[in-house]
Design a protein around this nucleic acid. Sequence first.
DNA 1: TATCAACACGAAAACGGTTTCGTAGTAAAT
DNA 2: ATTTACTACGAAACCGTTTTCGTGTTGATA
Lengths: 338, 338
Amino acid sequence: MKPKITIKIIAKELGVSTSTVSKALRDSHEISQETKERIKAYANYYNYRPNNLALQLRSQKTKVIGIILPKIVHHFFSTVISGVEKVANERGYNIMVCFSNENQQKEIETINVLTNGSVDGLIVSIATETLRNKALDHFYNLIENEVPLVLFDRVHNSIRCDKVIVDDIGAGYKATKHLIEIGCKKIGIVTTPEHVTVGLHRYQGYERALNEASISVAKGFIINVDEEQSIYDQIKTLFDQDIDAIFAVNEIYAAIAIRIAKERGLHIPNDISVIGFTDGLISEYSSPSITTVVQHGFTMGEQAAELLIDRIEDQKNDMVPQTKVISSNIKIRESSKS
Amino acid sequence: MKPKITIKIIAKELGVSTSTVSKALRDSHEISQETKERIKAYANYYNYRPNNLALQLRSQKTKVIGIILPKIVHHFFSTVISGVEKVANERGYNIMVCFSNENQQKEIETINVLTNGSVDGLIVSIATETLRNKALDHFYNLIENEVPLVLFDRVHNSIRCDKVIVDDIGAGYKATKHLIEIGCKKIGIVTTPEHVTVGLHRYQGYERALNEASISVAKGFIINVDEEQSIYDQIKTLFDQDIDAIFAVNEIYAAIAIRIAKERGLHIPNDISVIGFTDGLISEYSSPSITTVVQHGFTMGEQAAELLIDRIEDQKNDMVPQTKVISSNIKIRESSKS
DNA sequence: TATCAACACGAAAACGGTTTCGTAGTAAAT
DNA sequence: ATTTACTACGAAACCGTTTTCGTGTTGATA
């Protein structure tokens, strides 16, 4: 990398001091018109741009926000990043993206690195392992040190910060209710282990909808997928039950369920209806296309960024933490027409 | 954000100079064992971490690499990021992700911001608009200023830098040949406009395979999708031709083609075979699952990162630019079994 | 003619570190 | 007693900016 032109060089070349150059470039009234023009012309000719690091060190602001995600190869997280980037960009920030790979240790290290001056604040979705271990000290530390922090999607109540979540209980309720409304009565659910909050909540919504409709919750109808093992095999066991609908808490589980149904010669949606979660490409393009709860990832990203930047730029730090609930809605497609 | 503890504070509190503290923390032999321990204990107790910005300004290294992508909500780009992040992380770098949104102006601005000291080098996939306008001056500038740069996937030959590309011609050839081998003779192609190099190359491979098999290339068999208009309608026109196979240059085009085929009552793969590109979730989970050319995005990301970091850390800058060609292979699924 | 503003600029501190170089103090060697 | 050689530390420069505070010059005013 070629050395860049600096204010020092300009100053020396033009026989003035660095302060004069700095002021001239910022159009200070302290500098004469003549000198300003001379300096600006020179700077312009050599395409001078102030060094970001120096500015950041000086101002103690990086204008960068860090995002830590469990993973990226995932439609939902991609859209969230996209939303964050949009708002960040509009408000003059850049984003630094890191991944925890669902790993607690890496989450801790990443937070450490980023908060040593590299970013002005963090947007995080917590790693599975961290949630499972309930090891949240690194987040408590952030709060302790008043690092601007916004959690989204995978959050934890004990961490006192702004949050952006989807109304997972409501979404699970809506999804289940939709199935009930089209006449299904024996509804299986494919969800996550209980320590993954989103899965738990969606399950709770499912439960509520069934209760309301006076349908009892059958134990065998609930599959808690452990991703360490074969997802396919686990979902398959659900088909040994007498069911007429499946609510899957993400689109991959839904797609796999559809595949199994087809293999068993079941027609969708005539024999069995399926509803998924997260409005990704699979749901849109597979055949039958899949009815899903659309999770507004882009909106979540935008909101998270707005909250964070407000928090970063707000002097009065006493504002109580907010939680924004992004409501989701159902997009009915071919997999659930009654 | 609470003010962080600095070397200055430690020095004052312990009644020594900042240089002593700095040396002690870096275990310099210049400092007595006793003093070292005293300083380390204090620093440890207050959880001292050196400020990144200061280190970066001093060393003129950021240990950050910038990635500029046309978009992110796209399986291929996500996997590339993932690969870059893995290698970057292993070699002590962080990544800063930005998007051009296929927009030339934003690409230019992003490059400007990042190269003002925020990153040590760049990994870029060029925006469509830039390629269409053949306006590459901002890239020539990077080369001129010896900014470490690696282009991937969407590259341009006139830019003298390291590149990581897929063998698109070979991939298009393989895909078409596969269709020919399973007995297809009337093969349509759904590709991009010509200014998108990847689409052009895949088309060239298609052409070569047909020529080799002595099949003439029919003009009506070629759809150059303009994404400004309805993709669905454009692909539909292909079905007015008498075809027995479709080669789509990405998985969305493939999925749409399959949908249209179904709507027309055509069975896949009996009546018509389909092959896509990019091994994403759609291809894997849709029904029928789609035969695709798998593009090794993760590998590309890894290679790009290795090349870039080598270049950044290499003193002798005279090394000639390398181009790594990542070969792709075909994953045969249900949409093309003969 | 002495006083005072206004003007135009420079010196220096600051951001938070690292590193080179100098040096006081001590102990060993001459 | 003088020189030498460590040891252990501090002063100061440096990275590239911004900003506060002086200060010399000029022209106007009393």
